[in-house]
Write a protein that binds this DNA or RNA. Sequence first.
DNA 1: AGCCCTTTGAAGTGG
DNA 2: CCACTTCAAAGGGCT
Length: 613
Amino acid sequence: MPQLNGGGGDDLGANDEMISFKDEGEQEEKISENVSAERDLDDLKSSLVNESENNSSSSDSEQAERRPQPRPDLDSYEKTRDYFSEALRRQQDGGFFKSPHYPGYPFLMIPDLTNPYLSNGALSPSARTYLQMKWPLLDVPGAAGLKDPRSPTPGHLGRLSQTWWCSLFCSYKPHGTHMKMLMLMSQHLSVSNKVPVVQHAHHVHPLTPLITYSNEHFSPGTPPSHLSPEILDPKTGIPRTPHPSELSPYYPLSPGAVGQIPHPLGWLVPQQGQHMYSIPPGGFRHPYPTLAMNASMSSLVSSRFSPHMMPHHPHGMHQTGIPHPAIVSPAIKQEPNSHDHMSPSMHSKSPGPAKKEEDKKPHIKKPLNAFMLYMKEMRAKVVAECTLKESAAINQILGRRWHSLSREEQAKYYELARKERQLHSQLYPGWSARDNYGKRKKRKRDNKPDSTPEDFSIRNKNQCVQYLPSEKMCDSPASSHGSMLDSPATPSAALASPAAPAATHSEQAQPLSLTTKPEGRLHHHFLTGKPSGSASSSSSSSSSSSSSSHPSISIPIGTSGSHSAPIFSRPIPFSSLHHSMLSPPSPFHQAALHSHHALFQSQPLSLVTKSSD
DNA sequence: AGCCCTTTGAAGTGG
DNA sequence: CCACTTCAAAGGGCT
């Protein structure tokens, strides 16, 4: 295992910690890495730009990326967030293996303070743990700064890093969630005071004026129990001191820090009648889209963490015990399927008992996988760079981009996905993906397995016609992307899911993937003779589309031990082969090979070689 | 209104 | 163990 930080730690968690707290001594290296990755992105970007219908200059595009411009369609907050996320991602580039600009917030993940998975919005007790995990490194002033819980001075606000606020607002969803957010925030603050602090003393946080917490919305009363450093046991509901293991391994919090601080929320608690800050009716608009928030985090700060998911608390009572209609109402209104209630369909009168029961069950969404996280993050960017609108087309592009990502970059997402799953499992120990089966209307799939070429052409031809042009227009040409180590890595060996994405292939190897989609689906695994589509892909198996689109033969490599490793249909770059042959696929391997990666970036594809085992 | 499409990955089911 | 299915996000397109 490559060492990311010179530390040992086969344990992933250990690695995580190291990743989060890299030595400054590595800054230089990271900078170069950032530069390298940025170059990758630039390449990709420029290629996209060149081929996009936009015809916009690279510089323009770059500018747009670095300085997200207010877009008229900002009504979609999610999009905006993603957009910002992307900007951040570019800025930080590979947060997993590189030091973030704000060392203190390497993986600040701030969900909406709502349950990230409960579509109904119930904020389970465990969600608090989740929040702590997600906000482990808040830039919090020392206890002294928090001494006076009723002193919401700008100074206090100013002591929160912009990063933190950025994250906060990026994750923020208007209407009624701010209260909970603050509550949870404060909870986190109470346990993170010992975390390295990044202060921007000279700043009065720009967002300050946007915050309004009149007593109308928030009664500065006795801090709710959940605001204490304790964590409610998800199962028992009994407050308890969080076990270090419960906190994200990324954020090694000093146990001693827990519970030492007076309730920090005080600085946010306005005095009676005070309206120090105001929140725009439409909710927050992030003024600093490019502030350092780990892009990956932003992925987590996704729409899933919407206030809609806010739990419905009986009697309109905030979970904290503070009655606050504003917190609940909007959520309820927007998302009727609040779990204590019924999902939309259940709102119909007199549902059957069975159905009722079923409906009562909250819909816990699946944790996003690496690609989904990536998609969320990159979609906005792709959309911005292309004229494409259809998600199907966008997704095709994203799929290709995904494969063209460097190992580090992919590893970042795999790691994030792994964390997501971990958190998810912790939040919902009993949850199973199966629980969601059937919730969605069964997708109508062609019953004809591998329909005849004719059948195939009938429907998919249209698809090709429909999406292909766009793809050609927007997708980055393989040659333009420097990364040849584009294979996903085994998401952390230790804890990661068994699904260890094996090395993939260079984009260059399959420039026509989309155009050859129909034929591509027929290609078989180079060695196994099995369809290369990989069983994991629904589309590849039952529908004539998708991953089978790559016409080139696939070479199973580096699957060492990963039975579920995807089968890649494109030729594997020599570098990837080399790597995978040497050791089990892992993000960390890739990290270790980063320097080599840089070299390979400039290598012609001709290097693609099958190395012997 | 609701499904389709499209992507990858995770996890479930069934043989 | 393998093959296959479902779902996760997204949003225009289609019925």
